[in-house]
Design a protein around this nucleic acid. Structure first.
Lengths: 233, 233
DNA sequence: CGAACAATACCCCATATGGCGTATTTCACT
DNA sequence: AGTGAAATACGCCATATGGGGTATTGTTCG
């Protein structure tokens, strides 16, 4: 029943963490928190993406057990990545991390919760998105969820994401126009749409003309883009 | 620090739950679990969507405090909705619930974790998606997150969702073709694309022809649909 | 070294598209 | 009773589109 122990397998194989966070205080706090759990074979924390990709370790001194041998740093299994980094931003770093460690779980850990950052990160291939105000217990739980093959999003982030799937609140289009727009998105041409709906091609054309006017577009390509982007269909 | 008390405001205003679940055992278990917290002004549980929308209560007998007056059932603030319901499915019920209670949070609580169910539900306007194997403590935490304005997804569900944002693993298109496809999605025509890329319209046309062949489409509309749907751009 | 592909550029041509009209009917709202 | 929007249908016409070719130049890979 204890939520902190649920799903916590008896120390799965070696599992390596990498923290990329420029703020020294937060970085060391995270480093300490995650080390203390004893759940991870390695916790490495660096201050920027360049260092992470180069293999260096900012807080190496905080790891008494490690030798000074420049171990060829095995791939991390999970990366906690800040967005607001000096130099290469977390968003720019995402694809590079993905290329460097294809099997690593890349989790954003940032203060930003605007749509821009969230969807940029997800579209760049982030496997999760946590906010920095996540309480320690929940952060640990989230990382366990990721280790178990799941993904995680802070509730505020999940809200943005679920909202993004919702159909447009109010479409400027009539029911008939929406119906025709859907067929247009399927690539059907005037006559074909007409056959489906038992209309003349002329009528379909008028409808599409009205759709273009209402959506402020001038071509099928733009109409399809807007229809899919704004979830009009 | 206790994760079960974090974010739990001192009994916010009245907050009503509605559970729609056909399995009597599960329904009563949920009902009991949620009532016991004392966090909710009302916990109503019904066995199908029709009953929920009609205002009836299957487990009314389990609510000793309630009178037999047919109260005009105030709108619930949060609905836990199963998908595999007898009669109207949870997916069909979603829009009706949304229409009946525009401000309610509609959270799926189901055993299904296939892409079909998940994305159907989200596209139909679900505010969250939890799996039935969610441990009780985590279910309660999730509902608190929802009450606080967030959304929730079980890790396995969140995984599917985050994956859906990732760019296509391997596109059949060359870099140049991808570039041209992007401009095509913007609604530009041959000549305009050519101007942007310092190409002749003829060349653009050949590229687009090749794109069509590789994507198995025959029109701009289909190409745009596929490009956006498969995240080729 | 040859095959295959990517990228560039041009040709012909039937058809689809989109901008501009007009017109009728129905239905809702004022 | 009138105004407007939606849905139906038709016209003209310049241009864009897509299916079919050919050709040259590189690069890459076996």
């Amino acid at each position: 029943m204890d939520p902190t122990s649920a799903h916590t397998a008896p120390e799965a194989a070696s599992y390596r963490l990498l923290i990329v966070e420029d703020d020294a205080d937060i970085r060391q706090l995270l480093d300490l928190l995650l080390r203390r759990t004893g759940e991870y074979a390695e916790v490495r924390s660096v201050e920027d993406a360049e260092t992470a990709l180069a293999g260096g370790s900012t807080d190496a001194a905080a790891t008494p057990g490690s030798t000074d041998a420049p171990a060829p740093d095995p791939a991390p299994d999970l990366v906690l990545l800040d967005i607001g980094l000096p130099g290469m931003s977390g968003l720019e770093a995402l694809p590079k991390f993905r290329a460097a460690w294809p099997d690593a779980q890349l989790i954003m850990l940032t203060i930003r919760q605007d749509d821009q950052a969230i969807f940029d990160a997800l579209c760049a291939g982030a496997d999760g998105y946590l906010l920095k105000d996540t309480p320690p217990e929940r952060l640990l739980q989230a990382l366990r969820d990721v280790r178990d093959g799941g993904s995680v999003m802070s509730p505020a982030v999940a809200r943005r994401v679920t909202q993004s799937f919702k159909p447009a609140a109010q479409s400027p289009l009539s029911a008939r126009e929406t119906e025709i727009l859907a067929l247009l998105c399927d690539g059907l041409q005037y006559a074909a749409i007409g056959e489906r709906l038992f209309l003349s091609g002329h009528t379909v054309r008028v409808h599409i003309r009205n759709i273009y006017r209402k959506l402020h577009v001038h071509s099928r390509a733009e109409a399809v883009r807007k229809a899919l982007g704004d979830r009009l269909i």
